[in-house]
Amino acid sequence: MSFFADLVADLADLLAPLFHGSAMAAAIVAVTICVRLLVHPLSRAAARGQKARAKLSPQIAALRKKHAKNPEKFQKALMELHRKEQVSPLAGCLPGLFQLPAFFLLYHLFSSSSIGGEANELLDHKLFAAPLGGRFADALGDGGLFGAAGLLYLALFALVAAVATFNYRRTKRQLAANPPVAPGAPGAEQAPGAGAMAAMTKFMPLMSFMTLFTVAVVPLAAALYVVTSTTWSAVERAFLYRDMPTGAGAMGAAAAM
């Protein structure tokens, strides 16, 4: 914890000539970008894996039909197909998992009053008028929604809402082009968990807006990480999945897992 705090503080000192009083906030954004750059190879691998799974959709459909009355055999055959084609169903989870340590470190750094037995000087830093260790509730209590800190949060909410809307529309288009196997549809009984998958996909497009809640409840420093990382993800996924197969592609493969 102390090492990470010193690292962020040293980076803020380097950025101080450019960002002055907001140098710590700029350092947090820079740390987020560095984390995303480190994770980017995993994101590219996840994109390649998802495209590969999409191409397997016809074979998965054939396996589902072949093992219509035996879900266990279908799952074994599906795992064998993934092994043969060297496709990992878990590859898409890795980029998110590798980012969690950085987020939690920032969260604890700006939630703790002391680090290594000494007063936490990071809490003295601000982004404009908003303390990096403060939350949206604190901003409302100090000047209200249209106070200096409140206006900063409004700007963050507007950015998050714009990114979430972009992700929402993109996810809706993907789901429309690649509808999951619905209960009662031909072949639905062969897909274990298909009913749960169909229900989840109805909620999936709205998940992007959960970031608004996160930004509202975590310290501002952690909120900056979330906003920067979410914006990066939207741009990155739009680039990496620009040639994603449609039709019975990505979502059809996902529904089979």
Results as ranks from 00 to 15, higher is better:
residue 3 F to W: 14
residue 3 F to K: 13
residue 4 F to Y: 12
residue 6 D to I: 00
residue 7 L to G: 03
residue 8 V to H: 03
residue 9 A to G: 07
residue 9 A to M: 05
residue 19 F to C: 08
residue 24 M to Q: 11
residue 40 H to V: 04
residue 41 P to K: 03
residue 42 L to H: 03
residue 43 S to D: 09
residue 44 R to G: 14
residue 46 A to W: 04
residue 51 K to Y: 08
residue 58 P to G: 04
residue 63 L to V: 04
residue 65 K to L: 14
residue 69 K to P: 00
residue 69 K to D: 15
residue 69 K to R: 12
residue 75 Q to N: 13
residue 78 L to C: 05
residue 80 E to A: 15
residue 82 H to F: 15
residue 84 K to A: 13
residue 85 E to L: 00
residue 86 Q to R: 14
residue 93 C to Y: 13
residue 102 A to P: 01
residue 103 F to Q: 00
residue 103 F to K: 01
residue 104 F to L: 12
residue 107 Y to L: 11
residue 110 F to N: 04
residue 111 S to F: 00
residue 121 E to P: 00
residue 126 K to W: 05
residue 127 L to D: 05
residue 127 L to A: 01
residue 131 P to A: 04
residue 131 P to C: 00
residue 136 F to C: 04
residue 138 D to A: 07
residue 140 L to V: 04
residue 150 G to D: 06
residue 153 Y to F: 15
residue 161 A to I: 10
residue 165 T to V: 07
residue 174 Q to H: 09
residue 175 L to S: 06
residue 178 N to D: 12
residue 178 N to S: 15
residue 188 A to R: 06
residue 191 A to S: 12
residue 197 M to D: 07
residue 209 F to I: 10
residue 213 F to K: 08
residue 219 P to T: 05
residue 238 A to G: 13
residue 239 F to Y: 14
residue 240 L to S: 05
residue 245 P to C: 10
residue 252 G to Q: 12
residue 254 A to Y: 11
residue 257 M to Q: 14
